[in-house]
Design a protein around this nucleic acid. Structure first.
Lengths: 91, 91
DNA sequence: CTGTATCCTGAACGATACTG
DNA sequence: CAGTATCGTTCAGGATACAG
């Protein structure tokens, strides 16, 4: 289940961005320049489907959408931290 | 770095098998029937390259190779456990 | 028994263009 | 601004056959 949620080369990086707080689509695109709009959209859709992220559409113009983590999304912090620690360990 | 080591649909399952102790190629193939020889070989090669697994070739016939985790491999336990816990949590 | 080689399919990725 | 549509590329995965 966790593998399905985190599948994709960029998924963990998107989640990492959201740990720092709410982000708009443009914020995420700017923070991850190597990621195309399409893939970012795909990943966000996947994360929403897995209950990790919520989309909130702001009414008005220009269009603005806020993405933030659900409680389940915040619970991923332990997983990603463990991955980070392992990757950072020289031994 | 961790993403690179664990990349692939089956990698974590192979590592999980090795947590239980040393395994031969045939053991792993039997434990993961959905995994073709080629992919198993690919994943093991990847894990060896990342310093997670060691191959030990037994001399003699029939050929027999023992796979086991390095200390770095055992350190992955925390990561995989965290993933498992998250996936198991209903909340 | 333990793999590697080859070929094929499907999914993920990346770029561009376009809509609300 | 925030996406979706489309298309081409790249890569992991599966099947089969074969080599050490």
């Amino acid at each position: 289940m966790t593998l399905r949620a985190l599948r994709g080369r960029w998924t963990t990086l998107v989640v990492r961005e959201l740990f720092a707080g709410e982000r708009t689509f443009g914020d995420l695109a700017a923070a991850l320049p190597a990621l195309s709009d399409k893939v970012l959209s795909d990943r966000l859709g996947q994360l929403v489907a897995c209950g990790v992220v919520v989309r909130v559409r702001e009414p008005g113009w220009p269009s603005r959408v806020r993405y933030s983590l659900t409680s389940r999304g915040h619970a991923l912090r332990g997983v990603l931290d463990a991955m980070w620690v392992w990757g950072a360990a020289a031994t």
